[in-house]
Computed example of a mutant assay.
Amino acid sequence: MTSLKRWIVEVQDSPDGSGDGILQLPDELWNELAAQGWEIGDVLDIELVADPGHAAIRNRYAECRRLSATRKS
């Protein structure tokens, strides 16, 4: 059984004034996500969930890369 991990990160305002948010992820978390195909600059869908302070994060870019790689092999 895999144990759940929890990270608390803060969304920072982009310095370019675009209204975009920037997530600075802890190295351990980033290493796990990179192993799943995430790359710097990916656009994330963030959905707030019922528990206050929690969100579901989906990376459609990584999903598309994974599907594309599957079809090529």
Rank of each mutant, 00 (worst) to 15 (best):
M1P: 04
M1K: 06
M1Y: 03
M1T: 01
T2S: 07
T2P: 09
T2N: 06
T2F: 04
S3I: 00
S3M: 01
L4S: 05
K5S: 08
R6V: 05
R6L: 08
R6A: 05
W7Y: 07
W7S: 04
W7I: 06
W7V: 05
I8H: 02
I8G: 02
V9H: 00
V9E: 00
V9I: 03
V9L: 03
E10V: 12
E10A: 06
E10P: 00
E10W: 09
E10K: 14
V11T: 02
V11K: 05
D13A: 07
D13L: 06
D13W: 07
D13P: 08
D13H: 08
D13Y: 04
S14R: 11
P15I: 03
P15T: 03
P15E: 02
D16Y: 10
D16F: 12
G17E: 02
S18R: 08
S18G: 02
G19W: 14
G19E: 05
G19I: 09
G19V: 05
D20M: 09
D20F: 11
G21E: 01
G21V: 03
G21N: 04
G21S: 05
I22L: 12
I22G: 00
I22M: 09
L23S: 00
Q24P: 00
Q24L: 13
Q24W: 10
L25V: 07
L25F: 11
L25H: 04
D27S: 10
E28C: 06
E28L: 15
L29K: 10
L29T: 01
L29W: 05
L29Q: 04
W30T: 05
W30G: 07
W30E: 04
N31M: 07
N31V: 06
N31L: 12
E32F: 11
L33T: 02
L33M: 14
A34H: 14
A34N: 07
A34G: 02
A34D: 08
A35L: 14
Q36A: 15
Q36S: 13
G37K: 15
G37L: 14
W38L: 15
W38V: 10
W38I: 05
E39I: 12
E39G: 07
I40F: 02
I40L: 11
I40P: 06
G41C: 14
G41N: 13
D42P: 14
D42V: 12
V43R: 15
V43S: 12
L44C: 02
L44I: 10
L44R: 09
L48E: 08
L48C: 04
L48K: 13
V49D: 06
D51L: 15
P52Y: 10
P52F: 15
G53D: 04
G53W: 12
H54N: 10
A55K: 14
A56R: 11
A56L: 15
I57A: 11
R58Y: 08
R58N: 09
N59F: 14
N59C: 15
R60Q: 09
R60D: 03
R60K: 15
R60F: 15
R60P: 14
Y61G: 11
A62K: 12
A62H: 13
R65V: 05
R65P: 10
R66K: 13
R66Q: 12
R66D: 03
R66F: 11
R66C: 01
R66A: 10
L67I: 06
S68V: 01
A69K: 15
T70Q: 15
R71T: 04
R71C: 00
K72Q: 08
K72V: 03
K72Y: 00
K72F: 00
K72W: 00
S73E: 03
S73N: 13
S73Y: 06
S73T: 08
S73C: 03
